[in-house]
Simulated scan of single mutants.
Amino acid sequence: MVAAYLSNAFDDPRAVELDRWTLTCFPTTNKSSTHQRLFTLNIGPMEVLYLAYELVDGQVVDWGLTVYVSRSALEAETGCQLVELDARNDLLSIRATSMASAEDDGAVITCWFGDEVAGEQFDSLPLDVTTIRPLVDRLAIKGPGPYPRYHNPWFAAHVLQHLGQE
């Protein structure tokens, strides 16, 4: 999933590692006793992809993937406004993001994979170069974000080995 996002985001992800994107493992963002992120992909100043899990009584009960794309591109590709798209995909959360870096053109999509149909709904969305690249282009010109010191070069190297295999 990280390799797929990076392949859609950049012509050559290897060439812009750290300058345009970073990958953190087990970030503390929104961490609680019932919620933990496994990783977060940041492009410039904004998180654009993360995987998290939910715990109940110390046991993992669900895994969720959150991805950010261009709102205007997603609406153009699907022919639906976000509200309608969210209603049609009732097992997903699809909404506009309030992150300032997206400049009012970000959409955030969250899928919890405990329900197989949620995964099918997620897979039906155009999460590709048409919806990812417009947001990334907006973020990349803002320069490096504040996350290089948290970047995990070993995880990034593993992801980069899988470019083109997603």
Rank of each mutant, 00 (worst) to 15 (best):
V60A: 13
L38E: 13
Q36V: 02
F39M: 10
L23N: 07
T34R: 15
A52R: 14
Y50H: 15
Y50D: 13
G58D: 11
D57E: 15
G44P: 07
Y53W: 09
G58C: 08
S33I: 05
A52Q: 11
Y53K: 09
L38P: 02
T28K: 14
S33G: 05
Y53M: 09
V60K: 13
V60M: 12
G44C: 03
S32Y: 06
Q36D: 13
T40D: 02
Q59K: 15
F26L: 09
R37G: 03
T40L: 03
T22I: 08
P45D: 00
Q36C: 06
V61R: 15
Q59G: 01
V56G: 09
T40C: 08
H35E: 13
K31S: 11
P45M: 01
E54D: 11
T24E: 15
L41M: 06
F26E: 15
T22N: 14
L23C: 12
L38M: 07
T34Q: 12
Q36H: 11
R37P: 05
V60H: 10
P45S: 00
T29D: 12
V61Q: 14
L49Y: 04
S32Q: 06
E47G: 12
F26A: 13
K31T: 13
T40P: 01
S33F: 00
H35Y: 15
V48M: 08
L38F: 03
Y53V: 10
E47Y: 01
L38R: 06
V60T: 15
T24H: 01
V60G: 10
Q36F: 03
D62F: 05
L49C: 04
G44N: 07
C25Y: 00
G58K: 10
S32P: 02
